[in-house]
């Protein structure tokens, strides 16, 4: 337990210190929103209509872009060896890495969401469903993403490979997450069902991603 806490605390410290990736992911997220708005044009009603899907897509892409760092830095400086050698259960360690990634990427994205939502003229009724869906869905993104990062840990420039691997696996979370945000804003009775399915997808990821990550990390050691 002490080791798990230490890993999470260390990864957070590294993410928020100079050279860490957390601020960049948030900045990237904001940039995606702005680019979308510029591409669509200053039609306020159209922008506010696509605001929630754009924010969901942005959160997904910002997560994706930060995945590469989860394990690779540790592998390059040798600390992954230490982490693996001292882990009693590698899947617990893998889960800790995913939690650290969510705390340093997913959570800041959620905190930044209201600001981006203002820029994109999101309807007032849509804020709570959007934030709630992100809160339930982004941990799933971190979990699945950390698995892809573990698969590609031995490759020097893996961002692209990770994106190819992870995109199809992200689809259910995107569908249920954006679906919940839209249904909630519209007062649609499907809101609850979407949120439950989203929660189920994240729980499923929580159950399987650490096992798969541990297997991938072990295979990458040899």
């Amino acid at each position: 337990m002490r080791a798990v806490q230490a890993i999470i605390a260390r990864d957070l410290r590294l993410a928020f210190r100079a050279g860490g990736g957390a601020p960049q992911a948030v900045a990237f997220f904001a940039v995606i929103g702005v680019l979308f708005a510029l591409a669509v044009g200053p039609d306020l009603s159209l922008i506010s209509k696509i605001a929630a899907p754009v924010i969901w897509t942005g959160a997904l892409l910002a997560t994706q872009i930060s995945l590469d760092q989860i394990y690779r830095a540790d592998r390059e400086d040798g600390s992954l060896d230490v982490i693996i050698a001292t882990s009693d259960e590698l899947m617990v360690t893998a889960a800790a890495k995913a939690v650290a990634h969510w705390l340093s990427t997913g959570l800041p994205l959620i905190i930044a969401t209201p600001v981006l939502a203002i820029l994109l003229n999101l309807d007032r009724d849509a804020y709570v469903p959007l934030l709630l869906s992100l809160l339930i869905g982004t941990p799933g993104l971190s979990l699945i993403g950390s698995f892809a990062a573990a698969l590609a840990v031995a490759l020097p420039r893996a961002s692209l490979l990770i994106s190819i691997i992870v995109s199809p696996l992200y689809i259910p979370i995107l569908i249920f997450g954006a679906g919940a945000a839209a249904a909630g804003a519209a007062g649609d009775p499907q809101y609850g069902a979407n949120l439950s399915l989203l929660g189920a997808a994240t729980l499923f990821a929580a159950a399987f991603a650490p096992i798969a990550s541990a297997a991938a990390l072990r295979s990458n050691q040899d």
């Binding site: 210190r17 400086d77 060896d81």
Partner: peptide
């Protein structure tokens, strides 16, 4: 095992 890399993080202090 103490490998050729030092397993230390440059963004952390010695004590950290």
């Amino acid at each position: 095992y103490c490998g050729p890399q030092n397993a230390a993080k440059t963004a952390l202090t010695v004590d950290e």
